[in-house]
């Protein structure tokens, strides 16, 4: 694929990496950008389909109605039986708090 045909340019890619909160080395970045462009060329197959604008979006395959899905219920508070089983999974947990590095404060514009 020529550089010209690549939709994900280095600039677009860097922006995505920032949004995704990922840190990549150069080798990883080269591989991932190449594969993203390859996948987008496969996705372009969809452009050939003549779509009726009335065609609904399908967020899932099987339709859900009153016959196969539960009725909405009230929220019910339930105590966690073993809080420590959850909190001990945290990389840093002290005095009931999850510990994280500094969170810089940015003034709202």
């Amino acid at each position: 694929m020529s550089e010209k045909e690549q939709v994900i340019t280095p600039e677009v890619f860097d922006h995505l990496v920032q949004l995704a909160a990922l840190e990549l080395d150069e080798e990883q970045a080269d591989y991932l950008r190449r594969e993203l462009n390859s996948q987008l060329s496969a996705i372009r197959e969809l452009e050939a389909i003549q779509l009726d604008p009335e065609t609904p979006l399908a967020s899932h395959g099987v339709p859900y109605d009153g016959n196969n899905s539960p009725a909405l219920r009230e929220d019910v508070w339930q105590a966690c039986e073993d809080v420590e089983a959850i909190t001990r999974q945290a990389p840093q947990f002290e005095d009931g708090y999850l510990i994280v590095p500094d969170i810089p404060h940015t003034p709202l514009e």
Binding site: V17, E23, Q28, Y31, L32
Partner: peptide
């Protein structure tokens, strides 16, 4: 230094290539 760095480094080191590819796409 800060929380965003923690996210980027933890996710960068913790995820393999295939999860990264799916997140970006």
């Amino acid at each position: 230094g800060e929380l965003k760095d923690l996210y980027r480094k933890s996710r960068g080191e913790g995820f393999g290539l295939q999860p990264k590819l799916r997140i970006l796409m």
